[in-house]
Write a protein that binds this DNA or RNA. Structure first.
Lengths: 154, 154
DNA sequence: CCTGATGGTCAGCAGTGCTGACGATCAGCT
DNA sequence: AGCTGATCGTCAGCACTGCTGACCATCAGG
């Protein structure tokens, strides 16, 4: 990882780069959030839950890009820690609205600060411009339409 | 993912962006490589194996950033497909040197072309400049030193 | 020959994310 | 009202990945 043959063979491969950069960020994130007793995915749940009016689990799952069955375990964990509260929706009793508890809001505030600081340090090796551009570039790639399996009939 | 609340809450989070961009690339990669009967990780193994003189499994694992126990299964699969060959090293009979078979070299050539085309399409939404910069930026982040757990004694 | 270290292998475990099924609920229709 | 199909949350089960720990064969040094 220090300029040897790896660079020649792999360092220009997008897959390798994205995977390992993501891995490294995940490590930093886990370290930064450990004091708050949550991990990055759980923090993301807290964030989407405060972003608007109370969401159902399915809505939250959609915003996070995870499966609804995954969201069950996520909310389970957060509820167990006393950070969120499930409540049966009165408009539609199939749904659970999930809301932050006061403890959850405290946790969110602190954890978000820690995450921001972590990201700042993670991006420190870059020029400020390049850091901004990285975010924009990734956003562009994500918002591009999915290309489905190539089909001759297409 | 089309400009709704997700953008506000998550779209600027590095973790979310990296994870989902990586996921999307992985899908494209799987699709592009399917005709060759290998996946992205296996292609990466083939690449490092041709990059130099025959490598031992441990050396290959090091270059790929995977565990040696992971490499066992990887080489198993490739050997099963007839793309690589294990051979006991004569210098050090604890080691396996792993080499591409002719079929492996054919596969590598075709799969690399497919991967390059796939990456080109993946990066198509970006200006050429931004695509280049993305690679450089990711390389910079990866080559930055790991920051170990913060320690008061440090 | 011992001893300690190294490389490959395997079993087992943990984390993640999926599918498929189920019960409860809703909406539309009759 | 009652029936039907869809929706939401839940759970069990599976697959994939990547790790740890143990084992054996082998090497290097005494």
């Amino acid at each position: 990882m220090t300029g040897d043959a790896t660079s020649e063979a792999l360092a220009s491969r997008l897959g390798y780069l994205l995977k390992h950069v993501q891995l490294r960020l995940a490590e930093q994130s886990a370290r930064a959030l450990a004091p708050f007793g949550i991990d990055g995915r759980e923090l993301a749940v807290l964030v989407v839950l405060t972003a608007q009016n109370p969401l159902s689990q399915l809505e939250a799952a959609g915003r996070l890009g995870v499966d609804r069955t995954t969201m069950v375990a996520l909310v389970d964990a957060l509820e167990h820690k006393g950070l969120v509260e499930r409540r049966r929706s009165e408009q539609d009793r199939r749904k659970n609205t999930v809301q932050l508890t006061p403890a959850g809001q405290d946790c969110l505030r602190g954890a978000e600060r820690a995450r921001e600081e972590m990201e700042r340090q993670f991006l420190a090796p870059l020029a400020a411009r390049d850091a901004d551009r990285l975010v924009l570039t990734l956003q562009t790639l994500l918002s591009a339409p999915d290309r489905p399996a190539p089909s001759n009939a297409g």
